[in-house]
Design a binder for these strands. Structure first.
Lengths: 130, 130
DNA sequence: GTTTATGCAAATTCTTTGCAATACT
DNA sequence: AGTATTGCAAAGAATTTGCATAAAC
């Protein structure tokens, strides 16, 4: 492969995430771009942007692939170690800026981790008191 | 639904896990039972045994469904909160008997969690020194 | 003009469903 | 005998692949 090119698909994908910490499923992105970008292209653009360290992904409990913009991520390899949160009510996922120490486990060498939290997001919590 | 029955499929499935803490993918179980139990039955037996609290499952980073025997699990709903480990070398997954405290996150209500650790298991670590 | 990126269709993989046949009690 | 359980085939959902066409440089 040679030099990466600036394309409409790539720019559109990045614009979609903006400065948000919220994650989106690949499936949702495919729907969102219907007519503008082919399904296959969505997958390929995401792969590229992950390689470039601009987006990162994680697997939800549902087995779906979620993607979010990299803000504090040092590298695309670092993404496992910052926790993600998924709202049980509205389903949105987001990155948590939270440091979790990796524990020592006897007879195991732990190199990386994947933390996923479930509960209610700010918006859903607030909606109860209305 | 009425009373659960004791069947060969159910017993075979439980025997397969024995007293091991290791987890198996559903895909692997389907292969393992080829000729003895239909793919559909594997899925249904697993669902039943999870409902009964005898097995529990979690989603791996690969998006695959992993299943393990419940030892310390209080209930099938409790399973999210005990961590799992996956070996980067041999690929085996297992349950970790480890308590991880759930952190407080501002403006979020966290109800449950999913912890997945990656690294090298005992067996693979030992094989290096041979 | 050359090479990277995209679109489309088809293939793959994991999982679920419907329904008739089987087996447990 | 009655109903839970199973097998089989087919449908579904998410993702990948191959190849011809289009777009960036």
């Amino acid at each position: 492969m040679g030099v990466k090119r600036k394309t409409k698909s790539v720019e559109l994908m990045l614009e979609t995430f903006g400065q948000s910490k919220n994650a989106l499923t690949v499936v949702d992105l495919v729907k969102r771009f219907e007519g503008k970008m082919n399904k296959t292209t969505v997958y390929r653009v995401l792969e590229r942007l992950e390689d470039e360290g601009k987006l990162h992904s994680f697997t939800g409990k549902d087995g779906l692939k979620w993607v979010a913009k990299c803000h504090g991520c040092i590298s695309s390899n670092h993404t496992d170690d910052h926790p993600h949160f998924q709202c049980n009510d509205c389903g949105i996922s987001q990155c948590l800026s939270l440091d979790i120490s990796i524990p020592k486990v006897a007879n195991h060498k732990i190199e990386s981790a994947n933390f996923l939290f479930f509960g209610q997001c700010e918006q859903c919590l607030n909606s109860y008191s209305e």
